[in-house]
Design a protein around this nucleic acid. Structure first.
Lengths: 235, 235
DNA sequence: ATTCTGCATTCTGCATACAATTTACGCGCT
DNA sequence: AGCGCGTAAATTGTATGCAGAATGCAGAAT
């Protein structure tokens, strides 16, 4: 991941103008993979995809390398790239790693957060609670993710943030499968409130412990909704 | 994620034969960057490098994307890629993140290590102590790194292992600068012994704490030897 | 003397063409 | 009929050519 670039994920960013073709191809493929339009385990043909995306094979291949580094696709020599499978084991490991990273981030954030950071976090929390009350699922999820990203940024550690970003990309994918099946809104809101309180108290150990547990629970909840159909373990 | 773990990083792998050109270019550039043959902050020209490596620009550009994802080079639109600078801040953050990851790995490893894992670790520790007594610096470092990697693998968490790998690549680079300036051999050996003991006792908290502290100390020791010449902060 | 402007050069970005490797199919053999 | 082999089609990997952007330089205007 490029250390400097602000939003390489192209998440509805207003300035899509100044993006190279391979970046746009990568962004497009990312969302396609996350949304399941490219099913896990399926094979991709360069010529077909390049026509579909309206670019030539050269930038497409470059995009493939990027996505492979993010763990979204799997590259084999002289063979068609495969969309990475999303096995249950993989999801479990993924959220475990994510929980560990965010725990560390929270510990550091508790030490380094500025008042401005905390204010921003409070604002987000308030907004999220609003969306929670109004039942606005999409907005709720968006703010929720932003809170996690904000905490990670508050840790003021670039490599950590980058590692987090790549893991988040994969997690989004799993989350999309359980689309809105997250029935633990209330728990989640409360947990966020507790984490915020710990950060404000500069209690890094507690903040880390709470955030880690929160992420782990999110993962297990997600796994439970996916449990009835574990067919995702593509060969 | 991927059930069958392979070694896409091609770290001096014995079977270099079946590697694509872009992989070989990436591997070659990796070592060049780690060894400082491509100085931090310097710019790379595609045509020049492609001639130097004996490949065309296409696979070289693909290799660039991979290295950028690993954080070793920095890509700017329509500009020459730059070898990532190694600022003091960056090194500090890097080892901080690395310490966090390895702490988590040790905690998990304490739960999941098989007897075989522990036996392997004991063997490595013995060998390392041997190299330590004989003053064999290179071998010592090799075994040392292998111990860390082994502990991370013992955590049985693929995403975590992958994140660790990319961070290690950058750390190797910093370590190369302080080449052998690590005067804390004895400390390091003892610390490793304590970590091993904690793992054998299945005490995850202690193992994590010890390993994290160990990595942090390695980082600070490295920074101290680099302190007199902080010129590495390329613009 | 300095700065702005326009042009020429150089380099990146992309597309296309070519080579190598894999996969598919059909023929012949057992 | 089943299996193995060889050839052809398809697909990935690599090289090259061309267009657009950035950089450097020269000259003119202030």
């Amino acid at each position: 991941m490029q250390p400097k670039s602000e939003a390489p994920k192209g998440r509805k960013s207003p300035k899509l103008k100044r993006m190279g073709l391979h970046e746009r191809a990568a962004a497009r493929m990312r969302t396609m993979i996350i949304r399941g339009e490219l099913p896990p385990g399926s094979q991709t043909q360069e010529t077909r995809l390049s026509k579909e995306l309206g670019v030539s094979r050269t930038p497409l291949r470059e995009a493939m390398k990027v996505l492979a580094a993010e763990g979204l696709i799997e590259l084999r020599p002289n063979r068609s790239p495969r969309i990475a499978a999303l096995a249950v084991d993989g999801i479990s490991e993924l959220f475990e790693a994510l929980a560990g990273i965010e725990r560390l981030a929270a510990e550091l954030a508790a030490q380094r957060a500025t008042e401005r950071d905390l204010a921003r976090l409070r604002t987000l929390q308030t907004r999220m609670e609003g969306h929670h009350r109004n039942g606005k699922l999409d907005d709720y999820f968006a703010i929720n993710g932003e809170i996690h990203n904000t905490i990670v940024r508050m840790a003021r550690n670039t490599p950590l943030r980058e590692a987090h970003e790549t893991l988040i990309a994969r997690a989004e994918r799993a989350r999309y499968l359980a689309l809105g099946a997250d029935r633990r809104w209330s728990n989640s809101v409360d947990e966020h409130a507790n984490i915020l309180a710990a950060l404000e108290a500069r209690d890094g150990e507690a903040a880390g412990r709470l955030l880690g547990a929160h992420v782990r629970q999110t993962g297990t909840a997600l796994l439970e909704t996916l449990a009835p159909k574990p067919k995702l373990t593509a060969a």
